[in-house]
Design a protein around this nucleic acid. Sequence first.
DNA 1: GGACACATGTAACTAGTTACATGATTTG
DNA 2: CAAATCATGTAACTAGTTACATGTGTCC
Lengths: 255, 255
Amino acid sequence: MSLPHAILTALLEKPSSGLELTRRFDKSIGYFWSATHQQIYRELGKLEAEGLIRALTAEQPARGQKKAYEVLPAGRAELVRWTSTAQDPKPMRDALLLRLRAAAVVGAGGLEVDLRRHLELHERQLAEYREIERRDFPPGRDAPDDRLRHLVLRAGIDLETFWTGWLGHALAEFTQIAESAQDTEGAQGTKGAQGMKGADDARIAESTESAENAVRGEVAGPPDGERAGPPEGAAPTEPPGPGGAEPDGPGSEGA
Amino acid sequence: MSLPHAILTALLEKPSSGLELTRRFDKSIGYFWSATHQQIYRELGKLEAEGLIRALTAEQPARGQKKAYEVLPAGRAELVRWTSTAQDPKPMRDALLLRLRAAAVVGAGGLEVDLRRHLELHERQLAEYREIERRDFPPGRDAPDDRLRHLVLRAGIDLETFWTGWLGHALAEFTQIAESAQDTEGAQGTKGAQGMKGADDARIAESTESAENAVRGEVAGPPDGERAGPPEGAAPTEPPGPGGAEPDGPGSEGA
DNA sequence: GGACACATGTAACTAGTTACATGATTTG
DNA sequence: CAAATCATGTAACTAGTTACATGTGTCC
């Protein structure tokens, strides 16, 4: 339940229409709380109905007409209440890390390219943040609200710094893996988590292949469309090894 | 569309029942892709219907009966496809940063306590990750899949390091702000949201307050500029100061 | 008067959350 | 055999996404 409060904050900073808000959610506030224009219009409606904000423009509810909102005292009170209410951090969901983990199981083919792309995106974002800091927070600006806003910007900068650093490290690792795969080419399947014995050559083939850095996207079957029934005789991937001493943690599997 | 792939990955690492998966999503995979048991059961049903996984247990579809699943070749293929498909990073949503930004507008009352709580949570998580690293990734483990899993763990560690560092910094900043507020106390008794004198004055009172709390003590800074909230007598309908000199970025507002 | 940017909105969908229902197995 | 716990599931809801509809003002 944060979107309404994001909007209240934005409107307190500057009364705006839906589209103006949308634009501001593309930068600024949107850097840590994104929202589409549909979400915003819907929420503006609710907030108005609840009496937390009100439309400024007298009365011209025509469709293509601009309609600005401002925050009412009740809205401000609600924002104060929300801000000082304890909230648990939401459990994180990061698809890139998930993909990396999947890659540890099925092979890393093709992932490297996207890793590089992400690195570039984060580098660009970081540069943008730094530029904003240079421009908007010169030394000396230290009124409490400036400090708080600067703190938020610092979080953005530090986060992007983390990502660029980590992605750089990851790419270096990928290169090393590819190299060592070259060294031991054809010798082994390089699979660790559980003892895999024969049973599924496709998997070994894939793992080996990806270790060799072969990039390909069309190994896969139909992504959507109708999947005809389960391949009847198809042997499932191998059963877990009896000595399944699995590691634990975000990078591995708990026992 | 990552949940099914998270489940496929988990099942490849080890065939499991719904509840087992749920438990593993509380740690391990759940550290970067969380899911509730309801999500998991629903998704298992879909995946089975699509022929990507299948139930291991012959046939006992009774209600309280355990039911393990394994991944079929089609499921593995789909995971490979997904892993090597480019995906844009999802725009972030962090409620804590949003609250901080709101605090810059309505006052920071009560936020500090929760900041401290979050710091503790992140410290605990960081310690857990480090322990996992010590236990599961001793030097020498460098098969490709170990390296990839370690990489994911490193991301977790670095992320938590970022948070603890940033939260520490934020709390220090809060202390400073509080101190400088002490200095100027007596000049004005209003504090936080209670400063509301009436609907129309509430906003001004608060903005003014925070501007008057400007720090000028220990940190060698020039006297703060006269950037305050809306100037005298502004009604809530009035946009902020004429200069429109609002900063921009995640920590501030674009003009 | 057509193209286009501006501005607001509807509808349908997907993903995630919360609350609760129900049967099976263990254990005191 | 009652209670606790294991295990699977249903239902209703909230939040976020995607696609498209419709009107207004401007500029050429």
